[in-house]
Amino acid sequence: MTATDQGPRAIAGVIAALGWFALALQLVLIIAATRAAGGSAAGAVLNYLGFFTILTNILVAAVMTTTALGRPPSASLHGAATLSIAVVGLIYSLVLRSIWDPQGWQKVADALLHDVVPVLAILFWLAFARRGALKASDIPVWLVYPLVFFACAMARGAVDGWYPYPFLDAGRIGYRVVLQNAVVVTAVFAALAAVLVGLDRGLARLGRKSPPGSA
């Protein structure tokens, strides 16, 4: 995809708009819920930014925004955003979806952040990402993000007892189980990263084999 591709840029703009709307909506909801429980708006923002889902949706919204503006990110950064949002959707569906039942506007925010944006971001990468630019050496770089998030989540939890997800709640399930969960999630990240790189190479080969003017 180039900076002059109007169709992909328009689609990226739609995804960006959905992402920013969902993020803003979730921020309003978490501030309202926190203040209703006697907490502060500052504390609500701190918790908001403590979720991997939120940070990753910010990353995807930023990537889609720059793409819509004709300044697409590097292939590696686009791959990292796509990989991370895919993990968000997967972990939510497999682990978290069954343990709560959001209602009203919270259900709207939940669906956008965990379902709609992940699916659209993955489809956008499949359809429009520059091909053949990802490398196996990108994988360890991509893993830095979830590992840093894990370290920060554990550090904060040790200080104030707040953990973003039940499978990271060391106060409830213990550090040994948390570490096991972290290893599993990291393995999922690495496996999906390898799939992403493999897909990129496979699609690049298919593109080179396609005759001129083919779809």
Rank of each mutant, 00 (worst) to 15 (best):
M1Y: 10
A3N: 12
A3Q: 12
Q6L: 13
P8I: 12
P8Q: 07
P8N: 07
P8C: 06
I11D: 04
I11R: 01
I11E: 10
A12N: 07
A16H: 04
A17H: 05
L18P: 09
G19S: 05
F21Q: 00
L23V: 05
L23N: 02
A24Q: 02
L25E: 04
Q26P: 00
Q26A: 06
Q26T: 00
L27E: 00
V28D: 07
I30S: 10
I31T: 05
A36G: 13
A37R: 14
A37M: 10
S40P: 13
A42T: 09
G43A: 14
N47D: 14
N47M: 13
Y48D: 12
L49F: 14
L49N: 10
I54S: 02
T56H: 03
T56W: 04
N57L: 05
V60I: 11
A62E: 01
A62M: 11
V63D: 01
V63R: 00
T66L: 13
G70T: 08
G70D: 02
P72K: 01
P73M: 03
S76Q: 04
L77I: 15
H78S: 07
G79A: 09
A80S: 08
L83H: 06
A86R: 09
V88M: 08
Y92P: 03
L94M: 15
L94K: 04
L94G: 11
V95M: 10
L96K: 10
R97Y: 11
R97N: 07
Q103H: 08
G104Y: 12
G104L: 09
L113Y: 06
H114R: 06
D115M: 09
V116K: 05
V117S: 09
L120D: 07
A121K: 09
I122K: 02
W125K: 04
W125Y: 15
L126M: 10
A127L: 13
F128R: 04
F128P: 04
F128M: 01
A129R: 01
R130E: 13
K135Y: 04
A136S: 08
S137V: 10
I139M: 06
I139K: 06
P146H: 15
V148H: 00
F150I: 11
A151I: 09
M154P: 04
R156A: 14
D160T: 05
D160Q: 08
D160M: 07
D160P: 10
Y163V: 07
G171E: 12
R172W: 02
Y175L: 15
L179G: 10
L179P: 09
V184Q: 06
V184N: 02
V185W: 03
T186H: 07
T186F: 15
A187P: 07
A187H: 04
V188W: 03
A190S: 07
A191G: 06
A194K: 14
G198Y: 13
D200I: 03
L203H: 08
L203N: 07
R205P: 01
G207S: 14
R208A: 15
S210D: 14
S210P: 00
G213P: 15
G213Y: 12
G213A: 08
G213K: 06
S214W: 12
